[in-house]
Amino acid sequence: MIDKEVVVPGDFLSDDPSKAGTGTYVEGGKVFALAYGILESRDRLRVISLGGKYVPLPGDDIIGNVVDFSLSSWKVDINSPYGADLHISEHPQRVDFGDMCRHIKIGESIITKVIRVDNEMRVDLTLKGYDLKILRGGRIIDFFHSKIPRLIGRSGSMINMIKEECKCAIFVGQNGRIWVNGEGDNMALAIKTIKKIEDEAHTSGLTAKIAQFLEDER
């Protein structure tokens, strides 16, 4: 079933420190695995973790849930150990003092971008930008964040195939939340397909397998 090597923390990977990629560490000129995951060795050695939480990075497009607001910012849950702030100045419209509820209500979900992450992991978000918006309609599903590259596929091949086949609008947040909007049956099929990708993300030839799956389901 599995065709890639699974490594555990502390496994020796290489003698060449220049090959160390994410999910590895170098000690005494040798490269070791830092996490429990799947070893990928192209030009660099990388360990794709099989667990773990999303850690925000500036520039990530993510889906957040607004959980609270203070005088000048909304508090957003971004599916990470850290909460995030969306300051009113980062809203595309002018937000008057005391009028925040009219723009984004608590409980609403937003497509947003991470603009800043400081040393203490305080996270700032923005709604100013192409495609960033408040979500109305559709469904949000959870997906394991380190498998997202498989869902997107090479230059978006996988996700575009699902969008076309299921006639759905899909937004993939880097933090492991996916927004799907479409008609009833189409949306159900899209979600089923996404779940299948999550279950089989570690196998090879996935795009072909999913294409077959979508054809069978029709």
């Binding site: 830092l34 995951g37 667990g51 773990g52």
Partner: peptide, 11 residues
């Protein structure tokens, strides 16, 4: 801990 994906130097 390994299963939780916590970065560790070894078991």
């Amino acid at each position: 801990l390994a299963d939780a994906g916590i970065p560790m130097k070894g078991l």
